[in-house]
Structures are given as structure tokens and as C-alpha cells.
Design a protein around this nucleic acid. Sequence first.
DNA 1: TCCGTCATATAACATATGTGAGTGCGAGGC
DNA 2: GCCTCGCACTCACATATGTTATATGACGGA
Lengths: 240, 240
Amino acid sequence: MFINPLVLKLEQRDRLSDDEKRVLEGAISRVRVVEADEDIVHEGDHPSESNLLLDGFAARYKIFSNGRRQITAIHVAGDFVDLHSFLLRAMDHGVLALTPCRIAVVPHTMLERITAEHPHLTRLLWLNTLIDGAIHREWLTAMGRLSATAHMAHFICELFLRLDTVGRADGDTIQLPLTQAELGDTLGLSTVHVNRVLQELRKEGLIRWQGDALTILDWERLKTVGEFTPTYLNLQHEHR
Amino acid sequence: MFINPLVLKLEQRDRLSDDEKRVLEGAISRVRVVEADEDIVHEGDHPSESNLLLDGFAARYKIFSNGRRQITAIHVAGDFVDLHSFLLRAMDHGVLALTPCRIAVVPHTMLERITAEHPHLTRLLWLNTLIDGAIHREWLTAMGRLSATAHMAHFICELFLRLDTVGRADGDTIQLPLTQAELGDTLGLSTVHVNRVLQELRKEGLIRWQGDALTILDWERLKTVGEFTPTYLNLQHEHR
DNA sequence: TCCGTCATATAACATATGTGAGTGCGAGGC
DNA sequence: GCCTCGCACTCACATATGTTATATGACGGA
């Protein structure tokens, strides 16, 4: 019930038995709420539990001494924001709530038990972290080789698709509550340039972005501009 | 014997039992050699085995239609270059041999058996892919928020450390057989700018780079310039 | 021995993106 | 009803990095 978004996500990649769904449900020790602009996990922590996002938006980020910040991932409902801390132990980055977040807490002892008793479920959790990695690689190529405009288009395509697959798209519109400063920290741009790039995408008739509501006006051209192909999101249903 | 580099690497992160070492040894179906500039795995493949690098250098890369290329990872001895294909199934990028590579081949059926029978070993393999992810995140922040010079310094620090931990550093010198074009594709720079940046690091007395031999002349200042802290490489020995 | 190839190195010039400063608007607090 | 404050937006200007072209030397093949 609570963790529906995760089950939904995993079931797009492989079949889950009823038993496995029950185990996932049972792995949750409690549900908590984190306010916007608060850390869900701090850099340097050695957490003993992982956080599954039920609702809201979160970002993984690193901060430099001079205050510059880079966001390395945006998370939406159904994402495990720090599943990797189960094995990595020390958090090498922080996780920030961009909006109020409802979070299911999964103790690492439960994850350890799953790895001991449920190989198939273990592989699916592993898969989850592998998809994170695939997204990181895609972001790397976008940062390295796309223009700022193309990068932004690519980012918008990805977020739309990811929200759509967990049922959070309404037609061609999604709620994407990111400020332009946050977008800049995500794409590695200054806020000024983020603004320029958004103007351009709007002027070209590709998107509309009013408040948090982002509407894709021309999906085909947006994909072309962003050189976006969604294979890396691994949305195929396969036996894993 | 053959897979020593992997055992070496895993043992830096956690204790391996003799049984586990034996299982890892036995997972290898054969050893093959790939020539320089040949693909180890092609983008789009659905491999049924994964490749463990015993010797040589390899790169994961994506290519755009217009020929631009981005390298998303550099792999050295002891790295599993495509362990993720076990669960991701389709390769969303290619893996290229930068030098002649000696490779241990591990069938996915063996990996599946390990996940079924050896939970601790499974966690360590999972950990391996998580460290890949941590490196990706670090590269993202370096690309997004460091100057070209700092980025290069950071990259050099990382590669030195990674080679050192598998016994491939000779004092302050490593063999790093990357062309400036390949460096550009790795850091998201033009070859011209790669050259400028290397000149600068040399002029500052931070490195010497002659042929493949890269010597770090001033480790402290290089780390400072590259804002390098190695926590993300997870070199601590912990129970996982 | 000569020739093509590939990598490094430079130069002159073009441009995408950053910087610093400032405006205006809307939401929320008191 | 006024006052912040955050956020989107603009402008003028600075600069890091890309582009195109060329020179040079090392190397291997014919």
C-alpha cells in the first residue's frame, strides 16, 4: 500500500510475486515527512537505514568549499534516494528535499535479510541502483557534449518520462517544482544562462513552464533538440 | 590466480573467505584478449557474459550521430567493465579497449548462481557497481562545477589512486596511455584545450607527462587544484 | 628511403556561457 | 496595507573554451 510507487516501478522491469511484494511492504519500519529545503540525509553520515521517496522531489548534491553546488540526481516518487548507503556505508553526498517529502524508511538490517533470503528481489534492488548509474552516465554525456539548450531539453524529456512511468504526468503536463537556480546546479549552468535557455525553448514553442506546471508542446522536436533516446531508463519488462 | 586484481580490490573493501575466493575463480569461463581500439562490448548488445579486466585500459563511451563522443568511465585492471549488463540486459553504451586488454569472461549464469547461493559475495559485487556510480557522481560534479584545469587535476588524482590500489603505481609515476583526444572525450573538452590545460599543469610544476608515463610532482598542490578528496572511492575496509 | 598517419603543439579568431548588478513581481508575515 | 524576500528576468561586459588551420616529430609500412 504505502510503497506502491516502488512496486509500480519494479513491476515495469520484471514480474514480482505476491510474496516479494509482501516482503517489500514489510521492509518499511516507518514513514516520515521531511520539510522542503531540509536534508533527508547528510553528507558524511553513516546511515543505518535507506529512504524510499513516496511523494515529493529530492536531489542528491555535493557542495564545494566556496559554496558552489552540483546536483547529481533528481528523485521522484518511487525512487530509493540512498539505497546505495546500505553497502557504501558513508554518504559521499547529501540528499535534499526540494519539496515536502513523504518517505518510507527501510532499515539496512531488512535489506541484509532480503539479500540473504530473496535472491530475485535482491537482483531487482540491485537493478534499481544500476538504473541510477545509467542515468548518471547519460547525464555525463549530456554535460560533456551537449549545448546548454540541448542539455535542458534532454533533462526535461527524462523527467517527463520518469514521472509518467509512476503515474505523475497529466497528459503533456507535469508538476516540476524546480527553481532556475536548482536547474542550474543540476545542469552545471549559471542561473542567468538557465533563464536564457528556457526563453529559447519557449520561443521555439517546445515547452510552456508556468509556476511548477511544465507542459511539453512539441514532444518530437524537444526529443530531437535534446538528442534524447530513453533506452538508458531501462523501461523494458524482462526477467532479471 | 587469474582474477587476482578483482580479489585484491574486493579485499580492500571487506574480508573474503577462501570459499568466496574460490567461487570467484570458478566463475570465469575463459580468458580472452582484445586488441587496442576494438570494442569489448558493443552498444545495443544483449550480452550473456560480463568482462573483468585483468590487464590494460578500457573506456565506456557513448557516441552521437554527428560523431561526438563522450567517455563515461575509464577502467583499469581489476575493474568489471560491464557487470551491470547482468541485470540491465541491453548495453546502453559501448566499451572500448584503449590498449590491448586481457579479459576474464564471467557468464551471467554464474553471476545468477552467486546471487542465489552467496549473499555476501553478491553484496560485494553489488558494491562494485555502486562504486562505479559514486565515481560517476564525482565526475558529474567535476564536469559541472570545476574549471577545465581543475577537472584535469581531479581526473589525474583519481586515476593515480585507483592504479595505486591495484599495485600499478611505481612511486609517483603511473602508465596512463591516453591520447589528448581521449582525454578530451573524457573531460568534455576539445583536444586543443586539453593541450592548453596540460601545459599549464606542467608549467606549474604539478605533473610530468612523457609518452605514457605520468609523474605527479606535487601531490598536495595537485589535490588542491583539483579539489580532490578520495572518500567517494570507498577505500575503507568495512563489513558489507 | 620515402611517405602517410597519428599525436602533440601553437596561433588567430569565434562564441557560448559566466559574472555582477539591477528591476519588478507576487506571496506571505505582521 | 506595508514590507520583506525569493524568484524570474534583463543588461552590459568578461572570459573560458571551441574552431579551424598549420607545423612538427615519431613511427611503421611499402
